[in-house]
Design a binder for these strands. Structure first.
Length: 466
RNA sequence: UCCUCAGUAGCUCAGUUGGUUAGAGCAUCUGACUGUUAAUCAGAGGGUCGUUGGUUCGAGUCCAACCUGGGGAGCCA
């Protein structure tokens, strides 16, 4: 790879053995301190959470130039890499030449040397990358995204790009964002007075996808093992630290996997991502551990090392009924588990991640494979500490008649799903899959408590800034 | 969407049962200092108290609505 004009990244300089050599570094000023004659600049270029210290003999430089070096300004520095005379760092650069690329007026630059609240930084999301915290979070996010692709690639999965714009609301996963080019003040109308989407761009009603699963299934029933990893949209009015209107979802879909194979994959996959982050982002995770969540590293190691507990829904209900805890919502077979129930199972009872299976069919989606008892389906939810449900998946119903009957029972427009049903008509196969919300996984690994702090530009109700 | 807490200087906050001229730390600016580590020390500037309306002789403080943010819940990933 061609490198730009001999610049060396801070990450490499900090472990460099080339003491006494001339080096060129570029980055943004975190702090400047010192006296009349000597100054110290902490410079960061995003390659690592650590800064390189630039030592400046002020009398050797033009006073006007020195004045431009303030917190947030951008510099290129040529100088000599030296063993540091001070404590706190091994090496430092004694500046020979300083070029100021961009100034940052200290009076109006919104970031101080001192820490800020996450809420304040959220308001300046265009600049928050320049803080230690967000540098760490987004480096870890990248590492995890890479780990996901690597895991699937190494295991023979194909990355399938499912559509962002969809013509069906089949899954019923939530409220959708409509995609339309019609004049919303004066749309064309049908003779019945409704909006005439035949006149719209696609000739039908279209929305932003809520899930790539159904399309992924089509791929799996030919390519055997596929996964999607892309943006997903929900127009729900959810105001919580765990929900976004636009988030990234990972959805593997595998032919010939039953529910047990599915669980094995989910557990192995989650452990792989956590292990990969621990091994490849140790500095960033250590920083987050020290600053925000003292038990973070311990918890991550725990997840990697311990086997997840597997239990079925009915068992979980029994545990909850016997539980020595007061719940706001009643525990009853047939109703969905509430957040408090999930938390009790994971944090109090089993004390490790839990995979729950065989839920009542009434509370789960139409495409899940029905058990022979006529009451439950082969669904599995992976429950994590702090977050609750992090993965939802199932073996899919591969029987044409059963699937069609369920679609009709739930009054889902069968016509819209003709293509989905055809896979069960021609060469159907047992298959399974699951969905993982990427940001929730990043939350778990970074320990950030608000999901808005693990995606660069969060989209939430009444907020689409940047 | 519901419950709950909050909104005062650039940032983080204090502000007593309603009472004269609204405070602190940090940041910024000026000065001092030859090795600092969120440097230190001295001084200075900086406010329509979220918005609108109301109660009152008098509102940062009480009331109402709205806006914004945090936490919890629902919906979910």
């Amino acid at each position: 790879m061609k490198k730009e004009n001999n610049r060396i990244k801070v990450k490499d300089l900090l472990v460099s053995e080339n003491l006494g050599k001339e080096v060129h570094v570029k980055g943004w000023v975190r702090t400047k301190r010192g006296s009349r004659k000597i100054g110290f600049i902490a410079l960061n270029d995003g390659s690592t959470i650590h800064n390189i210290q630039i030592v400046v003999d002020f009398p050797e430089f033009d006073e006007q130039t020195i004045k431009l070096i303030t917190t947030g300004s951008c510099l290129g520095v040529k100088g000599t890499l030296m063993k540091s005379e001070g404590h706190g760092q091994n090496v430092e650069i004694h500046a020979g030449q300083i070029e100021v690329y961009g100034t940052a007026d200290p009076d109006s630059y919104p970031l101080q040397k001192k820490g800020h609240t996450l809420e304040y930084l959220r308001e300046i999301a265009h600049l928050r990358f320049r803080t230690n915290t967000f540098g760490a979070v987004f480096r870890v996010r990248h590492t995890m995204a890479y780990a996901i692709h690597k895991y699937f690639n190494d295991n023979g999965f194909y990355y399938l790009h499912t559509p962002i714009i969809t013509g069906s609301d089949a899954e019923g996963a939530g409220e959708m964002f409509r995609v339309s080019v019609l004049d919303h003040l004066d749309p064309p109308k049908t003779s019945e007075g409704k909006v005439d989407y035949e006149k719209d761009f696609f000739g039908k009603e279209t929305n932003l996808t809520v899930s790539g699963q159904l399309e992924a299934e089509l791929g799996a029933l030919a390519l055997s093992e596929v996964y999607t990893f892309g943006p997903t949209f929900r127009a729900e009015n959810s105001n919580t630290p765990r929900h976004l209107a636009e988030f990234w979802m990972i959805e593997p879909e595998m032919a010939f996997y039953d529910i047990n194979d599915n669980m094995d994959l989910a557990e192995d996959f989650l452990k792989y991502i956590v292990r990969y982050a621990l091994e490849n982002s140790p500095d960033d995770l250590e920083f987050l551990n020290n600053m925000y969540d003292k038990e973070l590293l311990e918890r991550l190691k725990f997840v990697v090392e311990k086997e997840f507990v597997r239990a079925d829904y009915t068992e979980a209900i029994e545990v909850l009924k016997k539980a020595d805890a007061k719940f706001e919502f009643p525990v009853k077979w047939g109703s969905d588990l509430q957040a408090e129930h999930e938390r009790y199972l994971v944090e109090k009872h089993y004390k490790r991640p839990v995979i729950l299976t065989d839920y009542p069919k009434e509370i789960k989606a139409f495409y899940m494979k029905q058990n022979t008892d006529g009451k439950t389906i082969r669904a599995m939810d992976v429950l994590f500490p702090r977050l609750g449900e992090i993965i939802g998946g199932s073996q899919r119903e591969e029987d044409y008649d059963k699937l069609k009957r369920r679609i009709n029972e739930l009054k889902i427009p069968e016509k819209e799903l003709w293509w989905y049903l055809e896979t069960r008509k021609f060469g159907t196969a047992p298959h399974s899959g699951f969905g993982l919300g990427f940001e929730r996984m990043v939350q778990f690994v970074t320990g950030m408590s608000n999901i808005r702090d693990v995606i660069p530009f969060p989209r939430t109700p009444r907020n689409a800034e940047f």
